[in-house]
Protein backbone atom coordinates (compact mmCIF):
# COMPACT_ATOMS: atom_id res chain seq x y z
CA UNK A 1 0.00 0.00 0.00
CA UNK A 2 2.97 2.30 0.56
CA UNK A 3 3.50 3.08 -3.09
CA UNK A 4 -0.10 4.19 -3.52
CA UNK A 5 -0.21 7.90 -4.10
CA UNK A 6 -2.63 10.12 -2.30
CA UNK A 7 -4.27 12.12 -5.00
CA UNK A 8 -6.93 14.21 -3.40
CA UNK A 9 -7.19 16.28 -0.30
CA UNK A 10 -10.03 14.01 0.80
CA UNK A 11 -7.70 11.01 0.76
CA UNK A 12 -5.11 12.80 2.85
CA UNK A 13 -7.72 13.86 5.37
CA UNK A 14 -9.10 10.31 5.53
CA UNK A 15 -5.65 8.86 6.17
CA UNK A 16 -4.88 11.44 8.87
CA UNK A 17 -8.16 10.88 10.67
CA UNK A 18 -7.40 7.17 10.60
CA UNK A 19 -3.97 7.69 12.09
CA UNK A 20 -5.43 9.77 14.89
CA UNK A 21 -8.18 7.25 15.68
CA UNK A 22 -5.76 4.31 15.67
CA UNK A 23 -3.42 6.35 17.84
CA UNK A 24 -6.22 7.00 20.34
CA UNK A 25 -7.17 3.33 20.44
CA UNK A 26 -3.52 2.37 20.94
CA UNK A 27 -3.14 4.89 23.76
CA UNK A 28 -6.26 3.60 25.48
CA UNK A 29 -4.86 0.08 25.21
CA UNK A 30 -1.58 1.25 26.66
CA UNK A 31 -2.95 3.51 29.37
CA UNK A 32 -3.98 0.82 31.92
CA UNK A 33 -0.42 -0.54 31.86
CA UNK A 34 1.04 2.91 32.43
CA UNK A 35 -1.46 3.55 35.20
CA UNK A 36 -0.60 0.27 36.97
CA UNK A 37 3.13 0.94 36.65
CA UNK A 38 2.60 4.46 38.04
CA UNK A 39 0.59 3.12 40.99
CA UNK A 40 3.25 0.51 41.74
CA UNK A 41 5.91 3.21 42.17
CA UNK A 42 3.72 5.58 44.16
CA UNK A 43 3.37 5.85 47.91
CA UNK A 44 0.49 3.97 49.44
CA UNK A 45 -0.99 7.21 50.70
CA UNK A 46 -1.04 8.87 47.29
CA UNK A 47 -2.51 5.76 45.69
CA UNK A 48 -5.27 5.49 48.28
CA UNK A 49 -6.15 9.13 47.83
CA UNK A 50 -6.53 8.58 44.10
CA UNK A 51 -3.81 11.06 43.20
CA UNK A 52 -2.04 8.78 40.71
CA UNK A 53 -3.09 9.49 37.13
CA UNK A 54 -0.23 9.19 34.71
CA UNK A 55 3.08 9.20 36.57
CA UNK A 56 4.08 8.00 40.05
CA UNK A 57 3.31 10.31 42.97
CA UNK A 58 5.81 10.39 45.90
CA UNK A 59 8.04 7.90 44.13
CA UNK A 60 8.94 4.95 46.32
CA UNK A 61 9.98 1.35 45.91
CA UNK A 62 8.19 0.35 49.10
CA UNK A 63 5.60 -1.79 47.33
CA UNK A 64 8.32 -3.71 45.48
CA UNK A 65 10.23 -4.07 48.71
CA UNK A 66 7.16 -5.61 50.30
CA UNK A 67 6.47 -7.93 47.32
CA UNK A 68 10.03 -9.08 46.81
CA UNK A 69 10.59 -9.79 50.49
CA UNK A 70 7.60 -12.11 50.57
CA UNK A 71 8.84 -15.74 50.34
CA UNK A 72 5.46 -16.83 49.01
CA UNK A 73 5.89 -14.51 46.01
CA UNK A 74 9.18 -16.15 45.00
CA UNK A 75 7.82 -19.58 45.69
CA UNK A 76 4.78 -19.05 43.45
CA UNK A 77 6.98 -17.46 40.80
CA UNK A 78 9.14 -20.57 40.81
CA UNK A 79 6.06 -22.78 40.61
CA UNK A 80 4.84 -20.87 37.55
CA UNK A 81 8.19 -21.58 35.88
CA UNK A 82 7.88 -25.27 36.72
CA UNK A 83 4.33 -25.45 35.32
CA UNK A 84 5.21 -23.45 32.21
CA UNK A 85 8.41 -25.29 31.28
CA UNK A 86 7.23 -28.74 32.40
CA UNK A 87 3.80 -28.32 30.85
CA UNK A 88 5.08 -27.05 27.52
CA UNK A 89 7.66 -29.82 27.18
CA UNK A 90 5.07 -32.45 28.10
CA UNK A 91 2.66 -31.01 25.53
CA UNK A 92 5.25 -31.09 22.77
CA UNK A 93 6.35 -34.64 23.62
CA UNK A 94 2.77 -35.88 23.29
CA UNK A 95 1.49 -33.63 20.52
CA UNK A 96 4.32 -33.77 17.96
CA UNK A 97 4.42 -37.57 17.54
CA UNK A 98 0.64 -37.78 17.90
CA UNK A 99 -0.04 -35.21 15.20
CA UNK A 100 2.54 -36.92 12.99
CA UNK A 101 0.79 -40.28 13.40
CA UNK A 102 -2.56 -38.69 12.58
CA UNK A 103 -1.09 -37.24 9.39
CA UNK A 104 0.18 -40.61 8.09
CA UNK A 105 -1.99 -42.10 5.33
CA UNK A 106 -1.17 -45.69 6.33
CA UNK A 107 -2.56 -45.23 9.86
CA UNK A 108 -5.45 -47.63 10.36
CA UNK A 109 -8.64 -45.97 11.60
CA UNK A 110 -7.22 -42.58 10.75
CA UNK A 111 -10.65 -40.98 10.35
CA UNK A 112 -11.74 -42.41 13.68
CA UNK A 113 -8.69 -41.12 15.59
CA UNK A 114 -9.02 -37.70 13.98
CA UNK A 115 -12.69 -37.52 14.86
CA UNK A 116 -11.91 -38.60 18.40
CA UNK A 117 -9.57 -35.63 18.76
CA UNK A 118 -11.81 -33.11 16.99
CA UNK A 119 -14.95 -34.12 18.89
CA UNK A 120 -13.46 -32.74 22.11
CA UNK A 121 -13.53 -29.27 20.56
CA UNK A 122 -17.30 -29.43 20.24
CA UNK A 123 -18.31 -31.33 23.34
CA UNK A 124 -16.74 -31.52 26.75
CA UNK A 125 -17.98 -33.10 29.94
CA UNK A 126 -17.70 -29.87 31.88
CA UNK A 127 -16.13 -28.64 35.05
CA UNK A 128 -17.53 -31.10 37.59
CA UNK A 129 -16.84 -34.46 35.90
CA UNK A 130 -13.39 -33.18 34.95
CA UNK A 131 -12.66 -32.24 38.55
CA UNK A 132 -14.02 -35.53 39.93
CA UNK A 133 -11.86 -37.37 37.41
CA UNK A 134 -8.71 -35.55 38.51
CA UNK A 135 -9.61 -36.32 42.12
CA UNK A 136 -10.24 -40.01 41.37
CA UNK A 137 -6.91 -40.21 39.55
CA UNK A 138 -5.25 -38.92 42.72
CA UNK A 139 -3.88 -35.87 40.94
CA UNK A 140 -5.26 -33.17 43.24
CA UNK A 141 -2.61 -30.99 44.78
CA UNK A 142 0.22 -32.30 42.66
CA UNK A 143 2.69 -30.67 40.29
CA UNK A 144 2.40 -33.66 37.99
CA UNK A 145 -1.40 -33.37 37.92
CA UNK A 146 -1.36 -29.77 36.73
CA UNK A 147 1.30 -30.55 34.15
CA UNK A 148 -0.31 -33.65 32.66
CA UNK A 149 -4.02 -32.76 32.90
CA UNK A 150 -3.72 -29.87 30.45
CA UNK A 151 -1.08 -31.32 28.14
CA UNK A 152 -3.15 -31.63 24.97
CA UNK A 153 -5.80 -29.71 23.20
CA UNK A 154 -7.49 -30.51 19.92
CA UNK A 155 -6.80 -27.16 18.31
CA UNK A 156 -3.00 -27.44 18.62
CA UNK A 157 -3.02 -31.04 17.42
CA UNK A 158 -5.11 -30.24 14.36
CA UNK A 159 -2.98 -27.21 13.57
CA UNK A 160 0.18 -29.28 13.60
CA UNK A 161 -1.40 -32.23 11.77
CA UNK A 162 -2.53 -29.91 8.96
CA UNK A 163 0.98 -28.55 8.70
CA UNK A 164 2.51 -32.04 8.54
CA UNK A 165 -0.02 -33.02 5.87
CA UNK A 166 0.98 -30.04 3.74
CA UNK A 167 4.61 -31.21 3.53
CA UNK A 168 5.18 -32.95 0.16
CA UNK A 169 6.22 -36.60 0.45
CA UNK A 170 9.27 -35.96 -1.73
CA UNK A 171 10.97 -34.50 1.35
CA UNK A 172 10.90 -37.78 3.24
CA UNK A 173 11.81 -40.05 0.33
CA UNK A 174 15.55 -39.48 0.59
CA UNK A 175 15.47 -40.31 4.29
CA UNK A 176 13.43 -43.46 3.61
CA UNK A 177 15.98 -44.58 1.00
CA UNK A 178 18.63 -44.35 3.70
CA UNK A 179 16.50 -46.71 5.79
CA UNK A 180 15.25 -44.16 8.31
CA UNK A 181 12.46 -45.36 10.58
CA UNK A 182 9.37 -43.30 11.45
CA UNK A 183 10.99 -41.68 14.46
CA UNK A 184 13.97 -40.61 12.39
CA UNK A 185 11.77 -39.30 9.59
CA UNK A 186 9.76 -37.26 12.08
CA UNK A 187 12.82 -35.93 13.87
CA UNK A 188 15.12 -35.28 10.91
CA UNK A 189 12.63 -34.30 8.20
CA UNK A 190 9.28 -33.17 9.56
CA UNK A 191 10.31 -31.34 12.72
CA UNK A 192 12.89 -29.10 11.00
CA UNK A 193 10.42 -28.31 8.21
CA UNK A 194 7.65 -27.50 10.69
CA UNK A 195 9.44 -24.92 12.79
CA UNK A 196 6.79 -22.19 12.29
CA UNK A 197 3.95 -24.51 13.31
CA UNK A 198 5.86 -25.94 16.27
CA UNK A 199 6.86 -22.44 17.35
CA UNK A 200 3.21 -21.43 17.21
CA UNK A 201 1.93 -24.24 19.39
CA UNK A 202 4.86 -23.73 21.77
CA UNK A 203 3.78 -20.11 22.04
CA UNK A 204 0.16 -21.10 22.71
CA UNK A 205 1.29 -23.59 25.37
CA UNK A 206 3.63 -21.15 27.10
CA UNK A 207 1.05 -18.36 27.17
CA UNK A 208 -1.77 -20.53 28.46
CA UNK A 209 0.49 -22.10 31.10
CA UNK A 210 1.91 -18.80 32.28
CA UNK A 211 -1.55 -17.25 32.50
CA UNK A 212 -3.54 -20.26 33.67
CA UNK A 213 -5.25 -19.69 36.97
CA UNK A 214 -8.70 -21.24 37.25
CA UNK A 215 -7.71 -24.90 37.37
CA UNK A 216 -4.62 -24.16 39.42
CA UNK A 217 -6.89 -22.44 41.93
CA UNK A 218 -9.36 -25.33 41.93
CA UNK A 219 -6.91 -28.24 41.92
CA UNK A 220 -4.24 -26.94 44.30
CA UNK A 221 -4.96 -26.30 47.96
CA UNK A 222 -1.37 -26.58 49.14
CA UNK A 223 -0.04 -23.00 49.36
CA UNK A 224 3.42 -24.24 48.54
CA UNK A 225 2.38 -25.38 45.06
CA UNK A 226 0.29 -22.48 43.80
CA UNK A 227 1.48 -20.53 40.76
CA UNK A 228 1.91 -16.77 40.56
CA UNK A 229 -1.56 -16.11 39.11
CA UNK A 230 -3.28 -17.77 42.07
CA UNK A 231 -1.05 -15.86 44.49
CA UNK A 232 -1.95 -12.64 42.68
CA UNK A 233 -5.64 -13.51 42.92
CA UNK A 234 -5.33 -14.03 46.66
CA UNK A 235 -3.73 -10.61 47.02
CA UNK A 236 -6.44 -9.00 44.90
CA UNK A 237 -9.13 -10.75 46.91
CA UNK A 238 -7.76 -9.07 50.04
CA UNK A 239 -7.97 -5.78 48.21
CA UNK A 240 -11.57 -6.06 47.10
CA UNK A 241 -13.06 -7.87 50.11
CA UNK A 242 -11.29 -6.57 53.13
CA UNK A 243 -11.85 -2.85 53.52
CA UNK A 244 -10.61 -2.80 57.12
CA UNK A 245 -7.33 -4.41 56.23
CA UNK A 246 -6.68 -1.70 53.67
CA UNK A 247 -7.47 1.12 56.07
CA UNK A 248 -5.09 -0.20 58.73
CA UNK A 249 -2.30 0.31 56.23
CA UNK A 250 -2.99 4.01 55.91
CA UNK A 251 0.36 4.96 57.43
CA UNK A 252 2.42 2.33 55.68
CA UNK A 253 4.48 3.48 52.69
CA UNK A 254 2.61 0.96 50.58
CA UNK A 255 -1.06 0.09 50.29
CA UNK A 256 -2.90 -2.97 48.99
CA UNK A 257 -3.29 -1.11 45.67
CA UNK A 258 0.41 -0.43 45.26
CA UNK A 259 1.33 -3.96 46.31
CA UNK A 260 -1.15 -5.44 43.83
CA UNK A 261 0.19 -3.16 41.11
CA UNK A 262 3.75 -4.20 41.92
CA UNK A 263 2.86 -7.90 41.66
CA UNK A 264 1.11 -7.22 38.35
CA UNK A 265 4.22 -5.48 37.02
CA UNK A 266 6.46 -8.35 38.19
CA UNK A 267 4.21 -10.90 36.53
CA UNK A 268 3.95 -9.00 33.22
CA UNK A 269 7.72 -8.49 32.80
CA UNK A 270 8.46 -12.05 31.58
CA UNK A 271 5.55 -11.78 29.13
CA UNK A 272 7.03 -8.54 27.79
CA UNK A 273 10.43 -10.22 27.39
CA UNK A 274 8.90 -13.16 25.57
CA UNK A 275 6.53 -11.07 23.46
CA UNK A 276 8.91 -9.79 20.72
CA UNK A 277 10.02 -13.36 19.94
CA UNK A 278 6.46 -14.56 19.95
CA UNK A 279 5.24 -11.79 17.71
CA UNK A 280 7.25 -13.11 14.79
CA UNK A 281 5.18 -16.25 14.85
CA UNK A 282 1.66 -15.53 15.93
CA UNK A 283 0.57 -13.81 12.73
CA UNK A 284 1.61 -16.89 10.85
CA UNK A 285 0.26 -19.23 13.50
CA UNK A 286 -3.21 -17.77 13.58
CA UNK A 287 -3.37 -18.17 9.83
CA UNK A 288 -2.08 -21.73 10.00
CA UNK A 289 -4.90 -22.67 12.32
CA UNK A 290 -7.17 -20.23 10.60
CA UNK A 291 -10.87 -20.75 10.48
CA UNK A 292 -10.23 -24.34 9.50
CA UNK A 293 -11.70 -26.65 12.10
Amino acid sequence: MQNMNLYSRGDRLFVRVNMVLIGLFTLSTLYPFIYIAAVSFSSGFAARAGRVVLSPVDVTLAAYGRVLSEPQFWNSYGNTFIYTVGGTITSLIIIIPGAYALSRPQLLGRRFWNLMVAFTMWFHAGMIPFWLNIRDLGLLDSYFGIIIAFACNAFNIILLRNFFESIPSSFEEAARMDGANEFQVLWKVFVPLSKPAIATITLFCVVSRWNGFFWAMVLLTDEGKIPLQVYLRQTIATLSDDEEFSSTLIDAPYSVETVTAAIIVCSIIPVLCFYPFAQKYFNKGILLGGVKE
Binding site: I36, R48, N211, Q229, L239, A261
Partner: peptide
Protein backbone atom coordinates in the same frame (compact mmCIF):
# COMPACT_ATOMS: atom_id res chain seq x y z
CA UNK B 1 0.65 -2.52 21.40
CA UNK B 2 -2.95 -3.47 20.66
CA UNK B 3 -2.09 -7.19 20.38
CA UNK B 4 -0.40 -7.18 23.77
CA UNK B 5 -3.42 -7.44 26.14
CA UNK B 6 -4.33 -10.79 24.55
CA UNK B 7 -1.25 -12.26 26.22
CA UNK B 8 -2.07 -10.90 29.67
CA UNK B 9 -3.68 -13.24 32.17
CA UNK B 10 -7.27 -12.95 33.34
CA UNK B 11 -6.09 -12.36 36.90
CA UNK B 12 -4.06 -9.36 35.82
CA UNK B 13 -6.98 -7.99 33.81
CA UNK B 14 -9.12 -8.36 36.92
CA UNK B 15 -6.40 -6.72 39.03
CA UNK B 16 -6.26 -3.76 36.68
CA UNK B 17 -10.05 -3.42 36.59
CA UNK B 18 -10.38 -3.65 40.38
CA UNK B 19 -7.60 -1.10 40.91
CA UNK B 20 -8.88 1.29 38.25
CA UNK B 21 -12.51 1.15 39.46
CA UNK B 22 -11.77 1.17 43.18
CA UNK B 23 -13.93 3.76 45.00
CA UNK B 24 -11.15 5.68 46.75
CA UNK B 25 -7.98 4.97 44.82
Amino acid sequence: IVYLPHFISTVIIAGIVITAFSPSA
